[in-house]
Computed example of a mutant assay.
Amino acid sequence: MKKIVLLLVSLYFMVGCTDAKLNHQDTITAYYNARNKLDFNELKTLVNDSITIISGDYVMPYNTKGFYEVFKWDSIFKPSYKLVELEEKSNQVIANVKINSVRNTFLKNSDMTCQYRISFSSGKISKIEELNCTNVDWNTWRQGVDSLTSWIKKHHPELDGFINDMTMNGAENYLKAIELYQANVD
């Protein structure tokens, strides 16, 4: 009996001692896997209590609640994220990510590949900065957005403003606008 108790106690300490933190690359891989599964509970374990997202001139700081709102907005478009490459540089990782979604497909930029600089604080993601998107045609993107918003303003003014509404309701209206536009214009 003593041997069994001693063995169990030893196993307990061995398992407890191997409970290591994820390295940065594993954290980023888990982050994009959680994004693909639309699993915010897993996602929030990988992200700091405050996270800053930088895209072009837009610097968007979020607490957990705000980040959840953006997550819900994004999830409406059925996104998929595929890590193409990760390169670690001190406390940052450069990640190349292939992104697709209903919105990107509508804007004729499916499978866009973007490069992000991801920073960490206390082992968790604290900042995601978009560096560039190599295969995106921003002119086509802008034309698609302009055509959609002007058509919606004229034919469905009740949906006008969806383009700047970063809530789940705004994303649902965006998706509805795409569906209406495609049914009547394409």
Rank of each mutant, 00 (worst) to 15 (best):
174 Y>E: 02
159 L>T: 02
55 S>T: 10
108 K>T: 02
181 Y>H: 07
186 D>S: 15
49 D>N: 13
116 Y>R: 11
13 F>A: 13
17 C>Q: 12
146 D>P: 06
73 W>T: 05
11 L>K: 01
150 S>I: 05
99 I>G: 00
23 N>H: 13
49 D>K: 14
73 W>H: 12
167 T>A: 06
2 K>N: 05
166 M>C: 01
27 T>L: 08
144 G>F: 11
117 R>S: 05
7 L>A: 14
113 T>D: 03
134 T>D: 13
158 E>S: 12
109 N>W: 10
133 C>K: 02
44 K>H: 08
97 V>K: 07
119 S>E: 14
88 E>Y: 03
2 K>L: 07
65 K>S: 13
73 W>M: 06
168 M>D: 10
72 K>S: 08
169 N>R: 09
21 K>M: 06
53 I>R: 03
172 E>H: 04
124 K>E: 06
107 L>Q: 06
111 D>N: 14
94 I>D: 15
136 V>E: 10
93 V>H: 11
153 K>V: 01
105 T>Y: 13
171 A>T: 09
5 V>C: 01
5 V>L: 02
99 I>W: 03
137 D>L: 10
36 N>H: 08
54 I>M: 02
31 Y>K: 03
55 S>D: 15
121 S>N: 05
111 D>H: 07
25 Q>C: 11
124 K>Q: 09
5 V>H: 01
169 N>S: 09
82 K>G: 13
51 I>V: 15
34 A>K: 01
109 N>R: 10
138 W>C: 04
26 D>I: 14
13 F>C: 11
127 K>L: 09
152 I>V: 13
104 N>R: 14
170 G>D: 00
49 D>G: 05
131 L>V: 10
182 Q>T: 08
168 M>L: 11
100 N>D: 13
83 L>T: 07
166 M>D: 04
128 I>L: 12
24 H>C: 05
136 V>A: 01
101 S>C: 07
173 N>I: 00
26 D>L: 12
116 Y>N: 09
9 V>L: 14
100 N>Y: 02
54 I>N: 00
177 A>I: 03
96 N>T: 10
109 N>Q: 12
183 A>W: 03
176 K>F: 10
154 K>Q: 13
79 P>W: 05
55 S>C: 09
133 C>D: 08
74 D>M: 11
175 L>Q: 09
83 L>I: 14
14 M>C: 11
46 L>S: 11
146 D>G: 03
43 L>P: 06
72 K>M: 08
141 W>Q: 07
142 R>L: 14
55 S>E: 15
76 I>R: 09
15 V>P: 04
140 T>Y: 05
3 K>F: 06
70 V>A: 14
154 K>S: 12
144 G>E: 12
46 L>I: 07
182 Q>H: 00
186 D>P: 09
116 Y>V: 11
30 A>P: 07
87 E>K: 14
10 S>E: 03
25 Q>M: 12
124 K>R: 11
102 V>F: 11
177 A>P: 04
161 G>F: 00
115 Q>T: 15
155 H>G: 04
24 H>F: 08
37 K>A: 14
1 M>T: 13
181 Y>F: 06
120 F>H: 04
111 D>T: 07
113 T>F: 04
18 T>H: 01
80 S>H: 07
105 T>L: 11
25 Q>F: 06
36 N>M: 07
88 E>W: 01
15 V>I: 14
113 T>Q: 05
